[in-house]
């Protein structure tokens, strides 16, 4: 293809639009001024130290990790066998069941959060943490069903049948033949669901209370009253986390396959 200068410039401008705001955040994390300033004066790491010294950031980071890990693990335990069942022949109402499993992506996040809060926390008096966990499970499940499901569809099921013929039980064949063959997509779906759950705001916002606040919720409430480089520093740390997770996905399944 010939050089397309106009198109390159346009695409370059779009990438500048996507990255300049994030680059500015990164730069402001190192300024010495106690309110955010750009361009910055001086150079310091003190705001990064301040992030780690902020107890509510650290507590909510740990809570976020706990909730996202538990929710995505639960989604894996329930989602992988379900995705497997949905690729088998002879399951009646398969497409209907699959849409039902994917439906949390169609229902707006604020609505999921609101109805869980009203029904689980207010009406059934179930502890907030359980509600938060269930909400994150709901939003994680579709990722598992979709990514693992599409890799199961490409799997040659005759290898499983060979195992049955050779005397293996169905359960054993699933564990020792099917699972290893889809392990990279399991990992990728886990990563995607984890990132999505970790970043979630609308569901967490409704299901937060004293001592229960995920990191994005805490950060959001912090931003409403503070405008200082601590926010920038925390943003930089979270972006570094994203880069590491992206690198891990790229090394296992390849980023191109999960989007």
């Amino acid at each position: 293809m010939r050089k397309q200068r106009g198109l390159s410039i346009f695409a370059g401008a779009v990438f500048a639009f996507l990255f300049i705001p994030l680059i500015i955040i990164t730069i402001t994390a190192f300024g010495e001024n106690p309110t955010i300033q750009f361009p910055i004066t001086g150079f310091t790491f003190q705001w990064f130290t301040a992030v780690f010294e902020n107890q509510s950031f650290m507590d909510s980071f740990l809570l976020s990790l706990e909730v996202s890990l538990l929710a995505t693990l639960l989604a894996l335990i329930i989602g992988i066998p379900a995705a497997y069942a949905l690729t088998r022949q002879g399951v009646k109402g398969k497409s209907w069941i699959k849409s039902f499993f994917l439906s949390p992506t169609i229902i707006p996040g604020v609505v999921v959060g609101y109805s869980l809060f009203q029904f689980i926390v207010i009406r059934l008096q179930i502890p907030l943490f359980t509600g938060l966990l269930l909400g994150h499970f709901l939003i994680s499940l579709p990722y598992i069903i979709r990514v693992v499901g599409s890799s199961l569809e490409q799997l040659d099921f005759s290898i499983e049948e060979v195992a049955w013929t050779l005397g293996s039980t169905k359960f054993k064949a699933f564990i020792s033949i099917v699972l290893p063959n889809i392990s990279s997509s399991i990992f990728a779906s886990f990563m995607l669901a984890f990132i999505n759950s970790f970043n979630n705001i609308p569901v967490s916002q409704f299901l937060s209370g004293p001592g229960i606040s995920t990191l994005p919720t805490t950060l959001m409430n912090y931003i409403e009253y503070n405008y200082n480089p601590v926010v920038s520093a925390l943003s930089v740390l979270l972006m570094l986390g994203t880069i590491i997770l992206m690198f891990l996905i790229e090394k296992t399944l390849g980023l191109a396959k999960v989007v």
């Binding site: 994030l22 970043n199 926010v231 994203t242």
Partner: peptide, 30 residues
């Protein structure tokens, strides 16, 4: 293409609080 797709994916996987905060920096009075 792989590199550019990764670059496009990165903002998508970055927390929406951070991405909104970026525009507070850009669009505020100062």
């Amino acid at each position: 293409r792989g590199l550019l797709m990764a670059l496009t994916l990165f903002p998508m996987l970055t927390n929406s609080v951070i991405r909104s905060f970026a525009w507070i920096n850009l669009l505020g009075q100062n």
